[in-house]
Write a protein that binds this DNA or RNA. Structure first.
Length: 334
DNA sequence: CCCTATGATTGTCC
DNA sequence: GGACAATCATAGGG
C-alpha cells in the first residue's frame, strides 16, 4: 500500500467515526473528554482496519459524513502538515531531471534526417545528401531518390500522427488525473505541489513512450537509408586492367601481400579506384586466397609466369649486355 | 534462374 | 586503426 492509499484509507476510516458522531452529538463530548483517549484511539484504529472490507457505497457515505464533520478542517490541516513533513521532504528534492542524452541523440538524428524538422527542406535535403553519399549520378539515382523521399515522407507522417496521438493521450490523462486529485483533495491531504509532481510523473511516463516512438522511427530511417545507400547495392566490378594490376602486385608480393600506404596510393592511381577500395581488395584477396589456395593456384601460376617473363625480359637485356661485353673482352675488335 | 565471383560492410581482435 | 572473418548484395556466366 503506498502512502497516498494509506492516507485515504485512514481518512475514510475517520469518516466512519465522523458519521457515527454526527448521529450522536453526545459522542463528541464523550470523545473530547479526557477520560477515554485510549478507548477512542482504539475505536479509530478498529475502523481504519475495517474500512477495507467495506463496499464503495459505504465508503462514499463515510466520506460524505467526514466532509460534514466540524473537526474535519482541523484534522485535514494536521494531516497535510504531517504529510508535508514526511513524504514530500523525502521525495520532493531529487526532481528536476536533466535532459536525457539518449532522447537528445534521437531528436538530433530525427532532425538531421528531416523527420522531425520543418516539412519541406529537411526531407529533400536528406534525400539529396543520400544521393550524394551514394555517389550515383543525378540521373540514374533520381528514381531511387524520389522513392527514398516518398518512403521517408511516409515514415515522417506516421511519426507525426503517432506523436500527436501520444500528446493528446498524455494531456487527456493529465487532465483526468488532475481533476481526480483536485476532487479528492477535498477529502485527502493533497497539496497543489503534490498534484504538480503527479503531473510531472505522468509526463515522464509518457515521454518514455515517446522515446520508444523516436527509437523505432530512427530504426526505420536507418533501415531505409541502408536500403538505398548501401554501396553493396551499387557494386560494379573493377575493370580488367585494374584487376590485373592488383593481382600482379598481390602475386609478386605473395610472401607479404600488405602494400604500404604509398603502394596503395600508387595502385589506386593506376587502377582508377580509391585507396580504400585497394584496401578492400587486398583484404578480400588475402582472406580468400588463404581460405582456398588450391583454387587460386592457376591464377598464381599465371601471374608468376607473367612476372617471370617480365623479369626475364629485363634480365635478358642485362644478359645480352653482359654477354656483349664478355664477348667483346674475349674477342676485342672482332 | 541458379551458382559462383566479387566489392563492400560489419563486428571483433590485437 | 588496421587486419581479419563473416556476411551481404549484386554482377555475371552457364
Amino acid at each position: 500500500m503506498d502512502d497516498q492509499t494509506r492516507m485515504l484509507t485512514g481518512l475514510t476510516g475517520l469518516g466512519g467515526l465522523a458519521q457515527a458522531d454526527v448521529g450522536d452529538p453526545d459522542s463528541v463530548r464523550k470523545q473530547q473528554s479526557l477520560g477515554q483517549p485510549q478507548q477512542d484511539i482504539g475505536d479509530i484504529l478498529q475502523q481504519i482496519m475495517a474500512i477495507t472490507d467495506e463496499s464503495l457505497d459505504e465508503a462514499q457515505a463515510r466520506k460524505h459524513a467526514l466532509n460534514c464533520h466540524r473537526m474535519k478542517p482541523a484534522l485535514f490541516s494536521v494531516l497535510c502538515e504531517i504529510k508535508e513533513k514526511t513524504v514530500l521532504s523525502i521525495r520532493g528534492v531529487q526532481e528536476e531531471d536533466p535532459p536525457d542524452p539518449q532522447i537528445m541523440r534521437l531528436d538530433n538524428m530525427l532532425l538531421a534526417e528531416g523527420v522531425s524538422g520543418p516539412e519541406k527542406g529537411g526531407g529533400s535535403a536528406a534525400a539529396a545528401a543520400a544521393a550524394a553519399a551514394a555517389g550515383g549520378s543525378p540521373t540514374d539515382s533520381s528514381i531511387e531518390h524520389s522513392d527514398y523521399r516518398a518512403k521517408l515522407a511516409q515514415i515522417r507522417q506516421i511519426y507525426h500522427s503517432e506523436l500527436e496521438k501520444y500528446e493528446q493521450a498524455c494531456s487527456e490523462f493529465t487532465n483526468h488525473v488532475m481533476n481526480l486529485l483536485r476532487e479528492q483533495s477535498r477529502t485527502r491531504p493533497i497539496s497543489p505541489k503534490e498534484i504538480e509532481r503527479m503531473v510531472a510523473i505522468i509526463h515522464r511516463k509518457f515521454s518514455s513512450i515517446q522515446m520508444q516512438l523516436k527509437q523505432s522511427t530512427c530504426e526505420a530511417v536507418m533501415i531505409l537509408r541502408s536500403r538505398f545507400l548501401d554501396a553493396r547495392r551499387k557494386r560494379r566490378n573493377f575493370n580488367k586492367q585494374a584487376t590485373e594490376v592488383l593481382n600482379e602486385y598481390f602475386y609478386s608480393h605473395l610472401s607479404n601481400p600488405y602494400p604500404s600506404e604509398e603502394a596503395k596510393e600508387e595502385l589506386a592511381k593506376k587502377c582508377g579506384i580509391t585507396v580504400s577500395q585497394v584496401s578492400n581488395w587486398f583484404g578480400n584477396k588475402r582472406i580468400r586466397y588463404k581460405k582456398n589456395i588450391g583454387k587460386f593456384q592457376e591464377e598464381a601460376n599465371l601471374y608468376a609466369v607473367k612476372t617471370a617473363v617480365d623479369a626475364a625480359n629485363v634480365s635478358a637485356q642485362a644478359m645480352y649486355c653482359f654477354l656483349s661485353i664478355f664477348v667483346f673482352q674475349l674477342h676485342p675488335y672482332k
